[in-house]
Design a protein around this nucleic acid. Sequence first.
DNA 1: CGAAGTACTGAACCGTGCTTCACTCCTTGA
DNA 2: TCAAGGAGTGAAGCACGGTTCAGTACTTCG
Lengths: 195, 195
Amino acid sequence: MQARLDAQREALLAAAVALLSEQGYAGCSVVGVAARAGVSTGSVYRYFPGKAELVVEVFRGLVGREVQAVEQAADGPGDLIDRVVAIVETFANRALKAPRLAFALLAEPVDAPVEAERLVFRQVFQQAFARHVTEAVKAGVLPPQEAAITAAALVGAVAEVLVGPLSAGVASADTVPNLVRFTLRALGADDAAHS
Amino acid sequence: MQARLDAQREALLAAAVALLSEQGYAGCSVVGVAARAGVSTGSVYRYFPGKAELVVEVFRGLVGREVQAVEQAADGPGDLIDRVVAIVETFANRALKAPRLAFALLAEPVDAPVEAERLVFRQVFQQAFARHVTEAVKAGVLPPQEAAITAAALVGAVAEVLVGPLSAGVASADTVPNLVRFTLRALGADDAAHS
DNA sequence: CGAAGTACTGAACCGTGCTTCACTCCTTGA
DNA sequence: TCAAGGAGTGAAGCACGGTTCAGTACTTCG
């Protein structure tokens, strides 16, 4: 009955995602997740060594989804600079569409093992930025710059700008366009060329 | 014996700062702080309603110090753009000089009341940036832009770039210069004018 | 000097939430 | 049909850390 076993496991992960999306990390207690999955608390430990492993796996899954969406957007049409803009737009729009979840992934206090995972999350995004920035600098469409710093700064900038609306609940309609304009300036791109 | 009373209070606050600087928030338990201050745990509750109030007061004090340093740097000589650069440089250099503490103030997981204080912390810095950016835009030395977004993005960018070195322990010598160059581009200032 | 009040102590208390484990139930195969 | 074994249960156990409070020591004033 391997299928059934995996089904339970999936149910637990799905329940954790649901609780995380609705109530943030606080709702993600072992008892809560088990109840939501329609399983006893004890059963959680049949599938996961402990809470940390469960939550980390949830994080990895969600982050993977975001990274994939961003990578896909970056592979779309347009020049090198358009791609960096696409990363920012995609990331920001997705975050604003699922604010509670985005806040949980980006900023909500968590304990150490999950925090470590969050660091990885941010680094993956930084690398995505850095790759495209490096390429664009090499091609001469962006001025010379330390790609790693630019990438880290952009990740921080996007996250910080979003966290405000995310925790306040409301984002202005032109938050994302403004963020894009900031990004273009920060990259050193010609504003005029990418309105 | 008012003086003595205040002395105890100060000792507790100082002990909390010391522990925060050395071990981060984890070391800031009531028992730990009391021991460090040479006081019993019970006495903590003579001076503070609870742990939250103690830690929040510690945060406020530290943040006030940072804000003051930054404001002072921004009041120095130079044009409007130099002032924004001064904010970034001062903030970054101070953070890199007290990494553990900066990490605690900027990024370390804390519980709700302190998190709220951290939000205030970031907002104060954003306002400092926003004030100078607005002024510079009005004066025509920066292109038109939403100052609030630029300010939030810069705070996020600086924090993110610093958190890496802060948690890793080592910062490259040109982290700050690179950060300044990023800032200048992001503001839309002429790079050439402010090397 | 003695009584009253106050600063101070620190071990016990309590709430929270992860983890365990003795037990039940259900499926499986002879 | 009926043992046997594993899946599943959920209440009790446990660790952690903030908070409390009855007791002690010290200071002050009559």
